[in-house]
Design a protein around this nucleic acid. Structure first.
Length: 271
DNA sequence: CAACGGACCTGCCTGC
DNA sequence: TGCAGGCAGGTCCGTT
């Protein structure tokens, strides 16, 4: 479900409600997520105040003194604030009870998500330590992509979705960014010019920033920390639009599979 | 190394 | 109506 804009939307929505609150209780109803939920989760977090809610890649980092809760939403996860009287739904796997009557529920039908503890230095955690740059940071630019892609043969779309190269660009925004940059997704990444990588890096930044402004993309079930959908779906240029006319040139949008993922592109705008 | 496919899960939609 | 098959916003891991 969530790519970087969706996770960032959740982060921004939750932070003001969580910061300064103390953990009263953590209830684990289903520990079988991507990795087992730590058995000592409740004991470790109880009594600690939330210092900040940060994001790295598609991970949420809930910071406590000398401890960090790592949350990944996988494909179908959501984390939202609910009223204490609201009944639990199917697939509500965890709940965090905080001071001031704040109740946070983790919901994840497919259970591809993760809830882990990462200590005082979470960026040293194996899941975070080898990640590429944040796409909206200065460390991410055309020169970076160009350098990383030399001598490689994977498609530029699969390359762009590899978190070792740049984080946060998932299946929707990879297709969208390549459309904005005018690059065919199946092109071997090692054969894309420096000038085109400059355009691609700019396109990624632009698409992600716009999506964040719109509160993310809701295709079926994405909701932010308050249970509201995002509105970027109506601005999608190619994703999910196979056979429909390109908004720029009118040509029918095509679809192919790259790296086992559906890919959408315009044969006229993307060369 | 790089590239690829399978694996982990449930829900929903389509077509027979 | 039932059932099989395919697809879905992610990403780790084992094999080639």
């Amino acid at each position: 479900m969530p790519e970087l804009p969706e996770v960032e939307t959740v982060r921004a929505g939750l932070e003001p409600h969580l910061r300064g609150r103390r953990v009263r209780t953590v209830r684990v109803y289903e520990p079988r997520l991507r990795w087992p939920v730590p058995q000592d989760l409740a004991a470790v977090l109880r009594g600690r105040p939330v210092i900040a809610v940060e994001r790295r890649s598609k991970y949420l980092l809930v910071r406590f003194p000398d401890e960090t809760l790592l949350v990944h939403l996988g494909m179908s996860g959501s984390l939202r604030l609910v009223r204490p009287e609201e009944a639990r739904r199917r697939h509500d796997h965890l709940e965090f009870v905080l001071s001031g009557g704040v109740l946070l529920r983790y919901h994840d039908p497919r259970r591809f998500g993760a809830i882990l503890l990462a200590g005082a230095e979470p960026h040293a955690h194996p899941l975070l330590s080898d990640l590429g740059p944040e796409p909206l940071s200065d460390a991410f630019d055309g020169a970076h992509l160009y350098r990383r892609s030399r001598g490689r043969r994977v498609s530029v779309k699969v390359f762009l979705m590899d978190a070792a190269n740049v984080v946060g660009v998932g299946n929707i925004y990879a297709s969208e960014s390549l459309h904005v940059a005018g690059i065919r997704p199946a092109t071997a990444c090692g054969r894309v010019s420096r000038a085109r990588y400059d355009r691609l890096a700019e396109a990624v930044k632009c698409v992600l920033a716009n999506a964040i402004e719109q509160g993310g993309t809701t295709l079926r079930d994405f909701v932010n920390g308050n249970g509201s959908p995002g509105y970027f779906a109506r601005q999608l240029a190619v994703y999910g639009r196979a056979g429909q006319p390109c908004r720029a040139c009118g040509q029918p949008i095509r679809t192919i599979r790259l790296g086992q993922r559906s890919t959408f592109w315009c044969p006229a705008c993307q060369r």
